[in-house]
Amino acid sequence: MATKTENNTSSTAAASKNNTAKTAASNTNPDSNMDQNMKNSSLHKFFVDALKDIYYAEDAIVDALQKMQDAATTEELKDAFEDHQLQTKKHVSRLEKVFKLIGETPEKKECKAIVGIIQEGEEIIKSTEEGSMTRDAALIIAAQKVEHYEIATYGGLAQLAITMGHEKAADLLEKTLQEEEETDLLLTDIAEMSINFDAEQED
């Protein structure tokens, strides 16, 4: 009888230990638990849909920035577009990490907003004189329209990620948001330093 009691005690202890280990493992990754619970929620579906939208947008912006760099007049603006193109490629990779963190496969969905903004930028190139400061001034405005769309998108997505408990994803989205804001300020500085004034002197 004593042996049976000892066996029961051992089994109970082992089961308790296993349950404790499972609980500890679960607590180390709260994002996964949140993802599982919210997987079918309307907010989660909207969040994923918006990620697909900006994922498409970032990829399209990489190509657009090359065209803007080629069309720019001043070396300063060419360099700014080149730097942001490299940064945008990092943003694409960062978004892929966000998808994985929330248990989703990276996919693109056509972003009609960015398509329209990019088309507007292409029209600017066609309608301004090559080698002019007016073209550079106009390109900066076109680029900032892209930045403002991204700032609004990443700002909203970061807050949604926080709300849903996706802390690691939120950190990545906020990092991109900060970089987009810095680029917007840089473009303003470039315009105000000389390009706008030089453009005003052109016939």
Results as ranks from 00 to 15, higher is better:
36 Q>F: 02
36 Q>T: 01
37 N>L: 04
37 N>D: 05
37 N>Q: 09
38 M>I: 02
38 M>E: 06
38 M>H: 04
38 M>T: 02
38 M>A: 03
39 K>E: 08
39 K>Q: 07
39 K>R: 07
39 K>Y: 13
40 N>V: 01
40 N>S: 08
40 N>L: 06
40 N>R: 01
41 S>Q: 06
41 S>N: 04
41 S>G: 09
41 S>D: 10
41 S>R: 09
42 S>K: 05
42 S>L: 11
43 L>G: 09
43 L>S: 13
43 L>R: 08
43 L>W: 00
44 H>R: 10
44 H>K: 05
44 H>L: 00
44 H>A: 04
44 H>G: 04
46 F>T: 09
47 F>G: 03
47 F>L: 10
47 F>Q: 03
47 F>S: 04
47 F>C: 02
48 V>T: 07
48 V>M: 09
49 D>E: 15
49 D>R: 00
50 A>C: 07
50 A>G: 04
52 K>S: 10
52 K>Q: 12
52 K>Y: 09
53 D>P: 00
53 D>Q: 03
54 I>T: 04
56 Y>I: 06
56 Y>T: 03
56 Y>P: 00
57 A>L: 07
57 A>W: 10
57 A>S: 13
57 A>P: 08
58 E>C: 11
58 E>S: 11
58 E>M: 05
58 E>W: 11
59 D>L: 03
59 D>Q: 12
59 D>P: 06
59 D>A: 02
60 A>N: 11
60 A>C: 05
60 A>E: 15
60 A>F: 11
61 I>A: 14
61 I>D: 14
61 I>N: 12
61 I>R: 05
61 I>P: 00
61 I>G: 04
62 V>S: 11
62 V>T: 14
63 D>Q: 14
63 D>E: 15
63 D>A: 14
63 D>S: 14
63 D>H: 14
64 A>V: 10
64 A>C: 06
64 A>I: 08
64 A>D: 15
65 L>C: 13
65 L>E: 13
66 Q>F: 15
66 Q>H: 15
67 K>L: 13
67 K>C: 09
67 K>S: 12
67 K>T: 12
68 M>Y: 15
68 M>T: 07
68 M>K: 11
68 M>V: 01
68 M>I: 02
68 M>Q: 13
69 Q>T: 08
69 Q>L: 11
69 Q>W: 12
69 Q>I: 00
69 Q>Y: 13
70 D>A: 13
70 D>K: 12
70 D>W: 11
70 D>F: 10
71 A>S: 01
71 A>D: 07
71 A>M: 00
71 A>V: 02
72 A>H: 08
72 A>C: 07
72 A>T: 08
